[in-house]
Design a protein around this nucleic acid. Sequence first.
DNA 1: ACCCTATTGATTTTT
DNA 2: TCAATAGGGT
Length: 698
Amino acid sequence: MSLSIITDDFIAEENAIHQEIYDSIDKNENIIFSAGAGAGKTYALIDSLKYIINNYGSKLQKHNQKIVCITYTNVAVDEIKERLGYSDIVDVSTIHERLWSFIRLHQRELLAVHTNKIEAEVDGLIDDLNTNEDTDIEKVYRVYRSLSTEFKVSFKDYMIEKKDVFYKSYGRNSENFKAVFNGELDCYGNILKNVGHFKKIVSTIYKIENYIYCLKKIRDKDDRYTTVRYEPRFNSDILHRMLFSHDTLIEYSLKMVRKYDVLKQIIGDSYPFILIDEYQDTNPLVIEIMQLLSMHSAKINHDVFIGYFGDKAQNIYDDGVGANITSLHSNLKHIKKRFNRRSTSKIISVVNEIRSDDIKQVSIYMDSAGDSVKFYHSEPTNKKDEIDSFVSKYVDEWSISKNNKLHCLVLTNKLIAELSGFSNFYTIFAGSQYYKKNFEYVNTELLSNDLGKLGVIPSALYKIIKLKKSLENPKTPLTTLLSKEIYSILSFAELKDLLLQLKLITGDSLSACLESIFNVYSAGNESVQKVINEVIDLEELSYSTFFGYVLDKLNPNLDYDNVAEYNNAKKKIENLFSLDIEEYNKWYEFIDNRQDSSVVYHTYHSTKGIEFDNVVIIMENSFGRDRSKFLDYFSNVIDPSGLDKEAKCKFENTKNLLYVSCSRAINNLSVLYLDDISSFTDGVEHIFGETQPYSATK
DNA sequence: ACCCTATTGATTTTT
DNA sequence: TCAATAGGGT
């Protein structure tokens, strides 16, 4: 077994690095700790927390002070809490939760910041509507601008009166949308000629009205307008209802910290130690907040220690600060760790080549030799078949089983759906009116691992599949199947009978499954009905009600009078309901993160922070709208110095994504590139060594 | 031939 | 949301 024997010298060196962190903590010297993938970064963070607890804990307690530990995701919060163990002097949280706790009590000042923001928004919107000379903006508002002042006012009044109709018709195609206002807008010239522009103009007018109304209420000190609130469940602000979301929380926090010295002092005095995990993902404004805290505390001579932990090469999201951190927070002491505790030496040398910066990792293990890294390329006619073939080649070669899984990394969720066997399910959802209009929701509402984020219909289907799968699986504990209030009041005989009845639920399509559920429901006793009621939350339990529910939710603006439109939408739901239930099962397994199969598919992005023994990476030229993301990367990798700023930025982003994906592998790594690589073979070989063609019919 | 409008199809992730 | 493209009008 490899990766088990650690060199003594390296242990000493690792200890010395930790000692360096301790020294900085003691000297109250802000640090940035950088370590590559698999280096034990989180370990260093937790070790630092423990050092602070042990050496400063009682002092902190005496002064009613705490340590702040901030990280990027709730999953990471839970992991740190678990690994650290319980401590009442460390507040581990996401950045948003912590910032909100810093500012939420200062509502009077927040209200001023909020009012300013709304005023600025109104100014911007009024400018767009009337005077902004930007060609794209001018084009949209041109028809409105050509109206006389008098007509502008009457148009505004008319549209405000028609608000309900406007929103109800919003999703229709242009012909049907125009029909809604037929003839009634003729006096406003060509206002309705371009429906896209019309919607934009009217939305702008509504927004301005909402904001002005809100500002008036704030000025009048209306009860409902005296406090603002951070709402983490939405992705965007609803400023006129005194709610704001993630980005605005950071913006408000920075404004408050900038403006009020007392706030800086309160934060610094309450939290003399601030440790930030995954700094590369942190919003630059947050770094600015930290810098301000640090400068102010120095000025008033109150000690505050700030420590950043992360890796600039793993910054794969655009809003993360990445390598810019040093220009935003000055005088940070750099501490680096060069060890890798994860991978075999060949993989380490590849990922070193990818990151090509000042961190060249070496394995901490003496026995780090291992299998080589492979890079194949091919130009198949059918990508799915090619990937399937490539994966099965490695299932054999690496002796893949449920105990030795193969993890296959691809770029899109759509491809995962195809490879995991629920492509029809995915396509029908993505093609529904609701998900077409809100394209980005397909990922969050249909494919999220966080069940709380599932959309209404995905969530309803999830519950049904869960019931069916639980009933089929003889190992399912009763407590999973039934809620306590149901099983606790039943006799054993009644319980047995209940299970017997429920087990009649079968079906190899969703319709069949639903039919049997509703049959069991109508034939069943009170307990049976209770169980089913918990799964399907509808007033009336019948097939047609459920069908109508799904139809309505996936087509929220369906015009029931339009026969063609109605039939079309109905057909899609029928298709969805008649799919092989196996597609639902595969989808269920995917979102439940409980893939039983020996091959598991992931997106590159979603693997951040985890590691796998056997990794296959599927790569191609394009990603999203960028037709040449990886092509450009490999074409420039030998000498990226000539790139302009924008190209450089894209290059870095691709590099980091490649770094994150390749560095997941512990033992085996093989890449399959699904495009012609002849124009950049030298670039690929610079990173991966030899390349070879792959052919499914080898 | 050119301009404008409508439709279509496409990335990932987190708070 | 947004860029690319199809399609209609002049």
